[in-house]
Each structure stands twice: as C-alpha cells, then as structure tokens.
Write a protein that binds this DNA or RNA. Structure first.
Lengths: 135, 135
DNA sequence: TCTGTATTTGCAAATGTTAGCATATCTAAA
DNA sequence: TTTAGATATGCTAACATTTGCAAATACAGA
C-alpha cells in the first residue's frame, strides 16, 4: 500500500506551500476579495517582486487562479474553503507561555475578523516578513 | 493591527512542522494508536535516528506528547483532532494531470482507511521517505 | 494607425540561510 | 552491559530575499 507515502507526500507539499507568513497573508486577503499584485503590495507593505514570487508559488500549486483584466492581473482563491480550513489550524497552536496571553487574544481577534469579513460572492472587483522555520 | 502578522507567522510555523512526509506519516500512525520510537521505526522503515529527529520537531511544537514506560518512550497526539484536520487538507490538492487518476484513487483509499481506523476516543489512557519541497 | 512611454507583472540570477540525512557518539533504564 | 532514544556534526540541496531586466498592455500624440 504505497498510497500512504504518495498521499503524505502530497499533503506535505501542500503544507510546505502554506508554511510562509506572506503566503498565508495573501490567502487571508484573497478570502475577503480578489486582488491585484499591486493591491497586495500595498496591503502587505512589501515589494511587488516579493508578492509576485509568492503568488507564483501559490499559482503553480493551484491554490490561486489568475485572470487578466487589462493591464492588471487579478488573483482569486481557487477554493475559498481553503481559507476557512487554514484558520481552523489555529486550534492546534499552543503558544509559548511567554507570549501566551498575547497570542490568545490575537487568535481571538483574527477569528472574529475572519468570521465577519465574509467575502461578497462578487464579480469583477477592481480597486485599490518574516521568516518561518520549524526547529 | 499587527496581530495578523503574529497569527500568520504562527500558522506558517505550524504548516512548516507539517510539511514533511515522515511527520505526516507519524501523525497518521499515532492517530490509530500510541506508539514507541521503535514501533514507528519498523512501520515507516527508516532509522531510529530519523524517527527520533522528526518526533523532536513534533514534540517541540507540542503536537505530540511523550511518556516514558520503563525503557520505552511512548508517543501520542496531544490533540487527536489534528489528524482529522490534516486529512481534510486532501480536499485542496489538485494533482498533476499525469498522476491525476493515480492520485484520485490514492486519496480515496486513504480517506477510507482513515475513516475506518477510528481511534477509540479513550480517556487518560497511558499504555503502550521522501523529501518535500515547494517550488 | 503607428510610435513612444509609463505601468504592471513575471522571470532569473546571486547570496545567505536552513532543513534533512547519515553517521557516530552520548544518556538513561533494566 | 545491553537496549532504547536522544543528540551532535558535516554534507548537500532547497528555500527566501533582493536586484535587475524583460514582456505585455494602456494611453497620448502625431
């Protein structure tokens, strides 16, 4: 039954794609509304190259989909449920005791924020760091 | 509102912990039953050092808990719901067209396997390779 | 229509950092 | 001493980040 190895490998790859704060942030923002590279650059406060590069990772792994709109490229989540699933992962985080309370309140804030900011099923909307290691 | 950065960082760290096939496999096996390092070594077919190393990553991130039993060390999931949540991530995997069908059936197999092998909800019980890159 | 320019995005290379593996050594319990 | 685990070290490969440049498009002017 080698399928276990295959599937755990695919899952690991998915988790690898998500193991970057900027990519998490991008997904978080795309849950609210479809955005261009420029808009994400402003929201996240990073260079366009950084945004584009992280988007290319998400794109090549089919988590986001692009669609050109004139000179802009608008990105949206292929499966919006992804953002919800990601947020559920908060339940498995056990913060360090030092940062415990800060994290607890932060998690609650985000849970509230994500809960209220429901993405309007919308049409063609148009406007507008850190490193993470394991050991 | 810097909490977004804090939380996305914590989430990214969690995903980083899970971005390794062996660690996924370990969680998968620990969902069925608590296991020792030696047992995991046999099941996964890797060296005890490799098992111990990956367990230390899981342990330092509070995903698994150890308990000595004589000369053995038994590991179990801190929160068994973690395994279920991980499996839900399969829904966001879009396999390459080449491997499409193989993956589809593999995913179904695993979903079935995980579905049936339910770990007894038990109380305070006390008993008893590949690399993954993103781009 | 054609041309030049600014805007937006993608892509590639260079550099620094880190994870994973294999091997070996070390510690704890019986 | 033996068995089960944990940890340290060196090597390799992959990742993150920045910088620069190329491609595509829109728009203004002739």
């Amino acid at each position: 039954m080698p399928y276990r190895a295959v599937v755990s490998g695919e899952l690991a790859k998915l988790f690898g794609v998500l193991s970057h704060p900027i990519r998490i942030r991008i997904i978080e923002e795309l849950k609210r509304e479809d955005l261009t590279v420029g808009a994400l650059k402003d929201i996240l406060g990073i260079t366009h190259a950084a945004v584009s590069q992280q988007l290319s990772v998400l794109r090549s792994n089919h988590l986001v989909v692009e669609s050109r709109q004139g000179r802009n490229v608008v990105y949206h989540l292929r499966n919006p449920a992804l953002a919800i699933w990601i947020m559920e992962g908060l339940g498995f985080i056990l913060p360090d005791t030092s940062e415990m309370e800060k994290m607890r309140s932060a998690i609650k804030d985000v849970q509230n924020a994500w809960g209220s900011e429901t993405k309007p099923v919308k049409a063609i909307a148009k406007k507008s760091n850190t490193k993470t290691r394991v050991k």
